[in-house]
Structure formats: C-alpha cells, structure tokens
Amino acid sequence: MNVFRLLGDVSHLVAIIILFLKIFRSKSCAGISGKSQVLFALVFTTRYLDLFTSFISIYNTVMKVVFLVLSYATVYLIYLRFRSSYDSESDTFRVEFLLVPVAGLSFLENYDFTPIEILWTFSIYLESVAILPQLFMITKTGEAESITTHYLFFLGLYRALYLANWVWRYHTEGFFDQIAVVSGVVQTIFYCDFFYLYVTKVLKGNSKLTLP
C-alpha cells in the first residue's frame, strides 16, 4: 500500500458517499445518470468476485463490501425509492455502445482466458467509460448541481491518484499492470474537460456548474 493508492481509495469512497448522501438527504436524484450508476455497480460486481475466494486484507475486504453495498444502494434509490425524480429523458446515453465493445475487448485483451480474469478485465475496461452517460447527461442539460460536481471531482481524482500509485509501484516494485494503466489513463482523460470546468467555475463559488 502506498499513499497514492490510499488517497485514491479514500477519494473513491468520498465520491460514492457524497453521491449516496446527496440523493438520500435531498430525496432526489435529479441530474444524476442512473445508467452510470448501474454501470458502476456492474464494475464492482464483476471485479470483486474474488471477495469470498481470496482474502487479501481486512481493509481490502471491507472496502470491497462498502463499494458494493453503496453502489447497489444508490441504484436502488435512483430506480426505486426516488424514481419519480429520475430524469430519464436526459439520461439517454446508449450503454449498449459501451457494453458490447468493452465485453468484446475483454475477450481479446486479457491476462488469462479464465472467467474470473475476463470478468476482471471487463470491469477495468467498463470502469474507464462508465462515467460517460453522466458526463453526456450534464452536457445535455447544460448544468449540474455543485454537489454533483464534487462527486465527479473525487471520482476523477481517485483514478488519477491510482496512476500516481502505478508510477510509484513501477519504480519501487517493478509492478506494471498494463491493462489497468492504459484503462486508467483513458478514464482520467475523460475527466480533463470536467476538471477544467470544475476549477474555473465551481471553485470560484458558483452555486451550480452551467456549461457555456
């Protein structure tokens, strides 16, 4: 474990908690893409299949359970508990355009042609594009509540910190996970435009992010 990966995991946890609390306390999921949240729940499900078969550490197990529980709870809030506030007209990204290529690529480019490894690879590729429905929804509505932008900031920051973690592990352990690194770079690039808007608009104190 190194400080970059720890900060990355904390940033990821903060993002997921911010979103869950925003929906739970405001009793509304306006402006939130339910499709992205379903994709994230699928990412955790296909990545953490080894939750019961291999024990890494208490930390690893607890974080996996927390991510799984919170992501499914968020999907429940959006599609069941507060479904009347779900803006399905704006959440129109065709996720099949993500799932099919990601599934195909995970069969082509993986470390081992075994179910666990292919599903893990699928989760890595899927995570790099899972935020696209949410970013697409914001460009479509032209705005986002500031709490939603804070969620996106910490979510984007988490994988950027993981990139630093991989640089660190390469230099200290010679560890290099090509599939995770390439996907992580792609994932972080998708946030760059948002990061610019977040720094120049939201941090200037605007109550919400409105796209130019």
């Binding site: 474990m1 890494i56 974080m63 470390y111 081992d112 490894e117 996970d177 090509q178």
Partner: peptide, 10 residues
C-alpha cells in the same frame, strides 16, 4: 500477456 496482477488493488 503474462499476468502481473497482484490482485491487491481495489
């Protein structure tokens, strides 16, 4: 590809 995964990352 040889499998470098240490499976310790979330």
């Amino acid at each position: 590809m040889d499998n470098p995964r240490k499976k310790d990352e979330l």
